[in-house]
Design a protein around this nucleic acid. Structure first.
Lengths: 162, 162
DNA sequence: AATATAATATAGCTATTGCTATAATTAAGG
DNA sequence: CCTTAATTATAGCAATAGCTATATTATATT
């Protein structure tokens, strides 16, 4: 049996194809750009459901940023067609905004439920889900959903027979 | 039996405590700041292992950004004490840099292995792991590890008995 | 109806991360 | 040793996301 010389033996976990890797990083920079929009829209939707209004000060308090920062972001969300502002009455979601909010919330809830099912503490669930939700692609999300409800057998089998 | 008036009935999935929520968002903004550092250091470590050198052009190609962008980031990494530059010989990791790289890589591999175990396609694993790894706290990471190797029973039980 | 309070707007600053275009320097080959 | 090609540095611009301080404007209370 002939062994490769140590020099040419690649580490078991070698680097991915450069193009694929740069595409990953690009995709993630792209995702990062959507994070803020999703966070704002999702939060506005939650606030509207809870108290029928979403004001800059409330949004600011929830996000832990200043009111002018919120004002600036809202201008962008208005420009993007996700929210409308009723002067001194807070902000409301457009159709497009509601759609984004629903998708984001669905995603968020699945990630949360999944982490809970894994036995993660409530505190960590809150923090980690907030970060993870934006980077979970459709396929991974489907896998999470499968693991939570129903398709448990597939999941177990995969883990057992690997 | 007295029912609350519809107005005061909160939706089943009510908003988290404002303080807790703003802390979540703060924590995630914090995490976001570390993302680039981890990405660079992890990649530099991989390049060094693979070819004993890590030049700006290679890093740029892998990350899908321009060389001047890399140059600027490297200046920061040098200032932060994670890398050293040998003129026209590329960059190398300090002790601190190697530590960060190892932690990041370990994290990355666990997330990848976990997603694979869930049945996610290789392509999605690459992209999603890159995004998710930075937002997985220690506790969640431990849960991932448990789910992959060994503590499978706990995991299944939790899913079954919830 | 006048005024106090709450809500929003605006000005102006900083830091970060990206870019292009171009200069400067080193390493390598002839 | 000299030149070319590779590598890195630098200048200068733009967009994003944050801040404080302050002005403005509605709402609501008296």
């Amino acid at each position: 049996m002939i062994l490769k010389s140590p020099r040419t033996v690649k580490s078991s976990q070698s680097l991915p194809d450069p193009t694929a890797q740069s595409e990953s990083f690009r995709a993630n920079r792209e995702a990062r750009r959507k994070v803020l929009v999703e966070d704002y829209v999702e939060l506005i939707s939650d606030l509207l459901e809870e108290s029928q209004e979403a004001r800059q000060v409330d949004i600011a308090a929830r996000l832990g940023v200043s009111q002018p920062t919120v004002a600036k972001m809202l201008a962008r969300l208005v420009a993007d067609g996700f929210v409308v502002q009723k002067p001194y009455r807070g902000v409301f979601l457009t159709e497009a905004g509601q759609k984004v909010a629903e998708e984001a919330r669905a995603r968020h809830r699945i990630v949360e439920a999944f982490l809970r099912a894994l036995g993660v503490s409530e505190e960590s669930v809150l923090v980690d889900a907030e970060g993870i939700e934006h980077y979970v692609g459709d396929e991974t999300l489907a896998a999470f959903k499968r693991a939570i409800d129903g398709g448990l057998h597939d999941f177990i089998n995969r883990l057992v027979t690997r």
